[in-house]
Amino acid sequence: MTEYKLVVVGAGGVGKSALTIQLIQNHFVDEYDPTIEDSYRKQVVIDGETCLLDILDTAGQEEYSAMRDQYMRTGEGFLCVFAINNTKSFEDIHHYREQIKRVKDSEDVPMVLVGNKCDLPSRTVDTKQAQDLARSYGIPFIETSAKTRQGVDDAFYTLVREIRKHKEKMSKDGKKKKKKSKTKCVIM
């Protein structure tokens, strides 16, 4: 069974824990209790493949930012979460993405942009803004509501699919490099 290491990042209060708990335990946590770091595991079937999701729910508070490099190193894919009623959390996505790329030393890291709290009427981040940002990053965008469960499975499952595509691409690139290195030079 394939294991996928997913990391949920975003500013404090955007609903990272609520999304994760909704996926794992099928219930909505409405009281806000700032996370330092929590880890969850769940076995699911995605596109006919049974897999184990190892999900790291991270601290959004700035005082825990020193811990970010460590979990970013171990993560295979990242859910970059903002709240649709919090423009600052949307603007912060850029910083999370840049930090992930720096730590992973790669421009090509599996990510999904997630606009959470889409059940709320007080939207300050337009869907088109988020779609445009995701398009500019070359990553999928999904709106979710941890409260109603809308888009929750889709967000995590899409990230797994992005990781699969990335692994497939990397193995193809690896095979191309191996083929090239088999060419021999004969000096007579």
Results as ranks from 00 to 15, higher is better:
25 Q>P: 13
139 I>K: 06
86 N>G: 11
183 T>E: 15
41 R>K: 11
188 M>Y: 07
21 I>Y: 14
152 V>T: 06
53 L>W: 06
132 D>P: 01
131 Q>N: 06
157 Y>I: 15
54 D>H: 13
158 T>C: 06
29 V>D: 11
70 Q>P: 09
45 V>I: 12
69 D>C: 01
48 G>R: 06
133 L>M: 13
182 K>F: 02
84 I>R: 10
15 G>I: 00
128 K>Q: 14
129 Q>F: 03
28 F>I: 10
52 L>R: 12
13 G>H: 03
160 V>M: 04
66 A>F: 04
11 A>M: 12
155 A>M: 05
116 N>E: 02
35 T>D: 14
173 D>F: 02
102 R>Q: 04
158 T>S: 07
25 Q>T: 04
160 V>S: 01
69 D>L: 01
106 S>K: 04
106 S>N: 12
77 G>T: 00
62 E>C: 09
118 C>N: 06
68 R>M: 13
165 K>M: 11
57 D>H: 14
137 Y>Q: 10
133 L>Y: 09
151 G>D: 13
101 K>L: 07
169 K>E: 13
77 G>V: 11
129 Q>N: 11
187 I>T: 15
25 Q>E: 07
124 T>Y: 10
35 T>G: 11
161 R>T: 14
28 F>R: 07
111 M>E: 00
155 A>C: 06
57 D>W: 09
107 E>G: 10
124 T>H: 12
113 L>Q: 00
159 L>R: 00
17 S>Q: 00
5 K>H: 06
109 V>N: 00
7 V>F: 08
79 L>Y: 00
151 G>A: 13
33 D>Y: 06
173 D>M: 11
37 E>C: 12
73 R>N: 08
82 F>M: 14
145 S>P: 00
144 T>P: 01
64 Y>L: 08
68 R>G: 11
153 D>H: 14
103 V>H: 07
123 R>G: 14
155 A>R: 00
132 D>C: 07
140 P>S: 15
127 T>Y: 13
93 I>S: 01
177 K>F: 09
51 C>V: 11
142 I>M: 13
152 V>Q: 04
139 I>W: 04
41 R>Q: 12
43 Q>R: 09
50 T>N: 09
116 N>V: 15
125 V>R: 09
68 R>P: 13
106 S>Q: 07
111 M>T: 03
70 Q>M: 03
185 C>S: 15
74 T>N: 13
158 T>F: 03
93 I>C: 02
53 L>K: 01
94 H>C: 04
33 D>W: 05
104 K>W: 10
126 D>N: 10
145 S>G: 06
62 E>N: 08
24 I>C: 09
113 L>E: 00
19 L>Q: 10
131 Q>C: 08
155 A>E: 01
178 K>W: 08
71 Y>M: 13
17 S>R: 06
69 D>P: 06
118 C>R: 03
144 T>D: 02
175 K>I: 03
36 I>D: 07
187 I>Q: 15
169 K>P: 02
55 I>V: 12
178 K>E: 15
7 V>D: 00
17 S>W: 00
5 K>F: 00
126 D>S: 11
39 S>V: 08
75 G>W: 07
111 M>L: 05
98 E>D: 08
100 I>H: 00
122 S>Q: 05
100 I>D: 00
64 Y>R: 12
29 V>L: 09
177 K>S: 12
165 K>L: 04
9 V>Y: 04
178 K>I: 08
44 V>I: 05
108 D>Y: 08
66 A>E: 12
99 Q>F: 14
55 I>W: 07
24 I>D: 14
130 A>Y: 14
182 K>W: 04
9 V>L: 14
183 T>F: 01
173 D>A: 05
80 C>E: 01
121 P>C: 07
187 I>W: 09
37 E>L: 03
166 H>A: 05
52 L>G: 12
177 K>H: 14
55 I>D: 09
41 R>G: 10
167 K>R: 13
7 V>H: 05
169 K>F: 03
102 R>K: 02
45 V>L: 08
26 N>Y: 06
123 R>F: 09
12 G>A: 08
8 V>G: 00
173 D>L: 04
10 G>A: 02
107 E>A: 12
81 V>H: 01
49 E>H: 04
187 I>M: 15
57 D>G: 08
48 G>D: 07
153 D>E: 15
182 K>R: 12
100 I>F: 05
41 R>A: 08
13 G>K: 07
184 K>P: 15
108 D>A: 04
68 R>T: 11
145 S>N: 11
176 K>C: 13
87 T>G: 13
170 M>R: 04
94 H>R: 07
14 V>S: 12
130 A>T: 05
127 T>V: 13
35 T>Q: 07
142 I>N: 11
14 V>L: 06
51 C>I: 10
162 E>W: 02
142 I>P: 00
99 Q>I: 06
131 Q>Y: 14
121 P>Y: 11
19 L>T: 11
8 V>A: 01
187 I>R: 15
168 E>N: 15
24 I>P: 13
65 S>F: 04
52 L>P: 11
172 K>P: 13
72 M>W: 06
187 I>K: 15
12 G>C: 08
85 N>D: 11
95 H>M: 03
103 V>S: 06
132 D>Q: 11
112 V>S: 01
57 D>K: 02
26 N>A: 09
25 Q>M: 04
149 R>A: 14
92 D>E: 11
165 K>W: 01
51 C>T: 08
86 N>V: 01
31 E>M: 06
73 R>Y: 05
2 T>M: 03
170 M>C: 14
86 N>S: 11
148 T>A: 01
75 G>H: 10
141 F>S: 04
168 E>W: 08
103 V>E: 02
34 P>T: 03
123 R>Q: 12
90 F>I: 14
110 P>D: 01
131 Q>H: 11
15 G>D: 00
166 H>Y: 13
164 R>A: 04
187 I>N: 15
90 F>Q: 03
91 E>P: 04
143 E>K: 12
139 I>Y: 03
120 L>G: 11
60 G>A: 07
44 V>N: 03
36 I>H: 10
97 R>K: 05
179 K>W: 06
9 V>F: 06
171 S>G: 15
42 K>W: 03
99 Q>M: 09
158 T>N: 10
141 F>P: 04
76 E>W: 15
79 L>K: 00
83 A>K: 03
6 L>G: 00
115 G>H: 03
134 A>E: 01
185 C>E: 15
17 S>Y: 00
188 M>W: 12
176 K>T: 10
10 G>E: 00
129 Q>G: 04
132 D>W: 03
7 V>S: 03
33 D>M: 08
94 H>E: 14
183 T>H: 12
107 E>S: 10
46 I>K: 08
17 S>E: 00
18 A>L: 04
60 G>T: 07
21 I>P: 11
131 Q>G: 05
3 E>F: 06
82 F>Y: 11
104 K>S: 09
161 R>V: 03
46 I>W: 03
118 C>Y: 06
140 P>I: 09
138 G>W: 01
169 K>W: 13
123 R>W: 10
27 H>A: 11
28 F>S: 11
140 P>R: 05
147 K>R: 15
81 V>K: 00
119 D>L: 01
108 D>S: 07
168 E>V: 06
136 S>E: 11
56 L>W: 11
31 E>T: 05
93 I>E: 01
32 Y>A: 12
129 Q>P: 04
83 A>E: 15
3 E>W: 03
73 R>P: 06
72 M>I: 12
4 Y>T: 11
158 T>I: 03
149 R>N: 09
153 D>S: 14
2 T>N: 12
108 D>L: 03
128 K>R: 11
7 V>Q: 05
120 L>P: 03
49 E>G: 05
142 I>Y: 10
52 L>V: 13
39 S>D: 10
53 L>M: 08
88 K>Y: 08
155 A>W: 01
34 P>Y: 03
48 G>C: 01
66 A>G: 09
117 K>I: 14
68 R>C: 07
14 V>T: 07
59 A>N: 12
